[in-house]
Design a protein around this nucleic acid. Structure first.
Length: 355
DNA sequence: AACGCGGGGCG
DNA sequence: CGCCCAGCGTT
């Protein structure tokens, strides 16, 4: 870490001037200078969706959620299955479960309004240190410091921090806090994140366009593209399993709602075997109903956070009175493939030529 | 402190 | 195809 030549006041003045001109236009954002605060409900919704997820992936989901449930009260009153189905495909499904929990707590304990208080926000389900600071600063213009991946990268480069993440988090947080201003902290938070997203990018940063190019230590030293350093991650093992896609003669599909916790928790899916390490044999291959199951050509390949999956898909037509050991039938007209998490939708797609 | 938890984009 | 990206909750 090397000392900066410029004082914090100069740095954030330069950044805010840049932001006033170059702020990204985003569906959940109020442009700088508009003189109004954004709706905390929309700030919260966008920030939860943006956890571990790109702006491009979030946009359509944000529009659908806020159109279908315009206020936190509307969302709190929604059916669980409707919210999970609308979230399908966005990933990290605990976020959707916590989104609903949080909406209901805001209605029950806070009169349907998000608290303008960092500690109270932090106590809500699905809101951690980053999201609490984001809502407090962006929605309420309170002086709190956001530290997301963008800010970590910007701080590591600005100060040429070589210690690897995630261990370097406290050090980077301290540096970010030093730069957070008393005036316009909300715009400042969005500005530093925009800087990381558009200029100070992970690979080939556009240092020539950066409002902090002069004080940036990593630019001077040529280390910017290599920062922040990260501790190496483990390689992902591969697992395999079988999914059973059953369709009754009246068109109803045999599906199951997965357990509330764990992988794809609370989501709809096809019944199947457990997913075991490649090389290990599958335990008791028991179809969810007795039928003439046909194994499809090809397989589904999907990568989760911590393992690769190869999924064999078996299909069958099920008699109208077939007893079922796992799952329940969902009527043809009630089934939307878009309600499925991606791996299950891939399995469904593979069957499209089979039925 | 370490681990579980998706999906998309890029080369 | 592998590699990169990256907050929250649980243990």
């Amino acid at each position: 870490m090397r000392d900066l030549a410029s004082p914090p006041e100069e740095l954030n003045a330069a950044l805010l001037a840049w932001y006033d001109v170059h702020a990204r236009k985003l569906p959940w954002r109020v442009p700088p200078g508009a003189g109004v605060r954004p709706d905390p409900y929309r700030v919260w919704m966008s920030e939860v969706m943006l956890q571990q997820t790109t702006v491009a992936a979030v946009k359509d989901y944000f529009h659908r959620f806020t159109t279908r449930w315009p206020t936190v009260g509307d969302l709190a009153a929604a059916e669980d299955a409707d919210v999970m189905g609308e979230w399908a495909g966005l990933g990290y499904y605990a976020r959707a479960r916590n989104l609903l929990k949080c909406a209901r707590v805001v209605v029950a304990d806070h009169g349907g309004r998000f608290p303008a208080d960092h500690a109270a926000l932090l106590a809500l389900p699905g809101i951690g240190p980053y999201t609490a600071a984001a809502i407090a600063s962006i929605a309420f213009d309170l002086r709190h410091t956001v530290l997301d991946g963008n800010v970590e990268r910007v701080m590591a480069r600005l100060h040429d921090v070589h210690s690897p993440l995630p261990g370097a988090k406290p050090e980077l947080m301290a540096l970010a806090e030093t730069l957070t201003p008393d005036t316009r902290p909300g715009d400042y938070a969005q500005a530093v994140m925009d800087l990381g997203a558009t200029i100070c990018t992970p690979k080939s940063p556009a240092c020539g366009l950066c409002p902090w190019r002069a004080p940036c230590q990593a630019r001077v030293l040529g280390t910017a593209p290599d920062l922040p350093r990260k501790t190496p991650k483990k390689t992902k093992p591969t697992r395999h399993g079988i999914a059973f896609v059953g369709c009754r003669t009246d068109g109803a599909w045999l599906l199951e709602t997965r357990p509330e916790t764990g992988l794809l928790g609370g989501m709809l899916g096809w019944p199947g075997t457990p997913w075991v390490d490649s090389g290990d044999a599958l335990p008791q291959v028991t179809p969810p109903a007795e039928a003439d199951w046909d194994t499809l050509n090809g397989e589904v390949r999907h990568t989760f956070t911590h393992f690769h999956l190869r999924l064999e898909v078996r299909v069958a037509q099920l008699d109208i009175d077939t007893p079922v050991s796992h799952g329940q039938f969902i009527a043809k007209d009630d089934f939307r493939p878009s309600d499925l998490p991606t791996v299950m939708r891939k399995a469904f797609d593979l069957t499209r030529n089979a039925f």
